[in-house]
Computed example of a mutant assay.
Amino acid sequence: MRDLHVVVPADIDDPTLPSGGNAYDRRVCRELAAAGVSVREVAVAGAWPRPERPARASLARALAALPDGAAVLLDGLVACGVPDVIVPEAGRLVLVALVHLPLGEEDATLASFEREVLHAVDAVVATSPWTARRLVAAHGLPAGRVHVATPGVDPAPLAPGSGGAGLLCLGSLTPTKGQDLLVDALAAVADRSWTCGLVGAVGRDPEYVAAVRGAISAHGLDGRVEITGPLVGDALEATFAAADLLVQPSRVEAYGMVVTEALARGIPVLAADVGGMPEILGDQDVPGILVPPGDVDALAAALRRWLDEPGLQAELRQAAALRRPTLDGWEVTARCLAQVMASARPGTPA
């Protein structure tokens, strides 16, 4: 495979702002390099997907400096909001857009920009089957131009847990992830024994974080619900080890990498029935519970069932343990991406 230029956000390795998209980009870059691909990262600073003028100019200069026919994998967060930068390079470069979450799911005003970009590039890679279907339906893309490369997961030891009472919510504290819904649901089961960690970046939406902190205090849950900020390495592994149930009340979720990370440790999942979440959990020997999105009462009822029914806990833990060996590693993700890049040609659907 020829040299591969990968355009990523400049904060890809910022430990204070972890995200699923950044984690995906970093891992596939490493896996592709390990497989012998010459990966050349192009990290561009900016308030993506709504960058300021200097960031647009920086991205434009970076692309203009690439030789004709260069293969470029574009992180969708960077590329899909700036058709004025991307479209002029279509045809000269081999452009493949990597879409973690359609921009229109969080900001409808960006949908038309994304549509223009995705029709101009030579191929599109979605990180879940749900995302691929969504892009085809929302933007009228030919299905043959949209490929899927789901995130991988690393093998991990079984989590010993905390006897059923250890709840974990993992993800940046933003309205999309729905921690406010979880706090309200936890208030409805405050008479049960549990603790809950809200683990994730707190710098993306400070006003939302302040609102979640306020709700925790208003419900009298200080000391039981802890906002830890982002955790990595041994601290994150210790948090996983103590968790009995991953709770993901997201309003929007294209895939949910933290779900497979939990399943790799045999931790069951309680999640909102959104986006690609049902595809991860499957329809046989389901290692978790799905509830309607945005429904605090349903979320509280599911938490109550988990806390009150040891039999349900045992059943879901067994299902999660059985799912562990079926999870694909990151090498599979990288191989899918490499195949798309190798088949893409300027102006020709891959």
Rank of each mutant, 00 (worst) to 15 (best):
G166Y: 00
P155D: 11
G164Q: 02
R145L: 02
T150K: 04
R145M: 04
G161Y: 00
A143C: 07
P157V: 06
T150M: 04
H139N: 12
H147Y: 08
G144I: 06
A159Q: 03
G152T: 07
H147D: 02
G152I: 06
L158D: 13
A159K: 05
G144R: 12
V153D: 04
V146S: 05
G163T: 10
P160N: 07
A165L: 05
V148C: 02
G152N: 01
G163K: 10
A165R: 15
P151L: 13
D154T: 01
G164S: 04
G152E: 06
A143H: 07
S162M: 04
G166H: 00
A156R: 03
P151F: 12
V153Y: 07
G152D: 05
G140L: 15
H139R: 13
G161H: 01
P160Q: 08
A149Q: 06
V148I: 11
A165K: 08
A159R: 08
A159V: 11
T150R: 11
T150P: 01
P142M: 12
L158M: 07
G161S: 02
A137E: 15
P160F: 08
V146P: 03
L158E: 14
L141Y: 12
L158C: 04
V146C: 08
R145G: 01
A149T: 01
G140C: 14
S162A: 11
S162F: 01
S162P: 04
H147N: 05
G164M: 01
H139K: 08
